[in-house]
Nucleic acid binder design. Sequence first.
DNA 1: CTATTACCCTATCAAACTAATAGAGTTTTC
DNA 2: GAAAACTCTATTAGTTTGATAGGGTAATAG
Lengths: 136, 136
Amino acid sequence: MLSKKTKYGLKALTFLARQEGKKPVQISEIANAENISQKFLETILLSLRKTGFLGSKKGKGGGYYLIKDATEVKMADVMRVLEGPIAMVPCVSLNFYEKCDDCPDEAICGVHKLMLQVRDSNLEIYRNTMLSDLIS
Amino acid sequence: MLSKKTKYGLKALTFLARQEGKKPVQISEIANAENISQKFLETILLSLRKTGFLGSKKGKGGGYYLIKDATEVKMADVMRVLEGPIAMVPCVSLNFYEKCDDCPDEAICGVHKLMLQVRDSNLEIYRNTMLSDLIS
DNA sequence: CTATTACCCTATCAAACTAATAGAGTTTTC
DNA sequence: GAAAACTCTATTAGTTTGATAGGGTAATAG
């Protein structure tokens, strides 16, 4: 299940990607437009800023804006920040690999085998989809 | 993240699929072999029996066994029982569709667009992978 | 320069879910 | 008829999620 955090984060990013210029957009404007709790959105945008996707400007006329062009924002990177590892199981994760403590041999494990396929296909989607692809 | 329930359920199914005949296997044997809490496994096997994947035999020499041949057990069906909907978001679910209460128009929603792709590719995997494919 | 705007941070909290455990009950077979 | 093994209900600790509250800090316009 996709977390609300990820859902809201993606919605905010697409909202910003749809903006004309690079003018900062206020949190409240995004929250209203996308029906998101403003306070919750704050923490999400903050994490997107800290991870280099967004910039922010304080004071009157401030807000958040995309740092890179939407065509250069890979969904794989966004998903890792918002949702965490793309793999459904740590033993098939590229960036967060961890051995299962119960499983004696990954080569034999059926779960491993299946989840490896799932990871590969999802990764391909997330790597080939840019933020710009999400706006109609 | 894959739940332990699903993980254990898949492991139990592959364990049963590896058996020679159709002889019932005791819960305790599966639990020991796969390092699973026996009581927890009980509830999982029970749900797999109720959904038609497993049969059980009581009394001495009893246990669980696969009802169908492993080549006929589609992972899509197994996953739906163990993990729930395959879609990461209800608005792209085939069997559990639900409209997002916040989203005014799915055709415009970027999340919808992305998750549709993910669902399609995952569904293809789960539909084309049989239980027999998971045993090496 | 100062008031306003808007970001930034910490803490808290209820609800839901997960994983595991306990214990008793029931059916079947030898 | 007793043992073996499945079946069921209830409980619980722990974690995560989503949301809220409230104040603090920085920057900008006028």
